[in-house]
């Protein structure tokens, strides 16, 4: 039984490698699809990671509704709304970046990626203003909560979740900035083409998730009643 004439791929030494193709993949499509599937699976784990915090928040909110509502008045919804707009814009520039990569327009790709990074930094800047205000007022998580003149007790719990959730999200924004810087650098070095743009695409997917999580965080923190 040896009708092995049908073997697809025979040798590891002499195939003409398209740039960017790793040894264990047969072609670029297979590699791209595997990377994309991997990224989606990673995003699933991210959703579940944040999901735990959302469930914890929901349960504690239902246990202490007055404290949570009273505490959320310390947040400035206008700053939260500003950041929502900033992140939505950054998602748009990211989409344009992916489009530029797919169509092989290197300069536009770099420009859109840099714009995305700037918007992400604006987001972190606004977050810095908000955080320093909270620090100044003693609106801190857990045992470090030292705000004076509260009429409703137990507001520290809201700030525990506020800092954990926005903090974890902030870390994701920072990691996103690093990832986008990395693909900007690779784009500048001319690694990408209309045939090979997988890394841009999957970093884009990650960035949209970071944006999406904020879209849920914003009403949960700033707009409860």
């Amino acid at each position: 039984m040896s009708d092995v004439t049908t073997t697809v791929h025979t040798d590891h030494q002499d195939h003409a490698h398209p740039p960017g193709l790793q040894h264990h993949f047969t072609n670029m499509t297979q590699q791209f699809e595997a990377a994309k599937l991997g990224m989606w699976l990673f995003l699933v784990t991210e959703v579940l990671l944040f999901g735990g915090l959302f469930v914890g928040y929901g349960i504690m909110h239902s246990k202490h509704p007055e404290a949570f509502v009273a505490a959320h008045h310390h947040l400035d919804w206008r700053l939260g709304a500003l950041n929502t707009i900033v992140l939505l814009l950054s998602s748009f520039t990211m989409v344009m970046g992916v489009w530029a990569a797919q169509t092989g327009q290197r300069k536009k790709l770099i420009a859109f990626l840099l714009l995305t990074i700037i918007l992400a930094m604006v987001f972190m800047g606004v977050k810095y203003v908000e955080y320093s205000h909270k620090f100044h007022e003693g609106l801190l998580p857990g045992k470090f909560y030292s705000h004076q003149g509260d009429t409703v007790p137990g507001q520290f719990m809201f700030f525990s979740f506020y800092f954990m959730m926005t903090g974890l999200h902030g870390i994701h924004v920072l990691l996103g900035i690093v990832a986008i810087l990395w693909i900007t650098f690779r784009a500048w070095r001319g690694h990408f083409s209309a045939q090979y743009y997988g890394p841009v695409d999957i970093v884009g997917l990650y960035w949209h998730l970071v944006d999406l999580i904020w879209i849920y965080l914003f009403p949960l923190m700033y707009l409860i009643s």
Binding site: L49, G56, G142, F156, S160, M164
Partner: peptide, 17 residues
């Protein structure tokens, strides 16, 4: 992962959950 982080936060910050 998140449960264990919450446990550490409880130990360090007394977040209350």
């Amino acid at each position: 992962g998140i449960t264990l982080l919450l446990l550490v936060m409880e130990r360090v910050f007394h977040i209350g959950i």
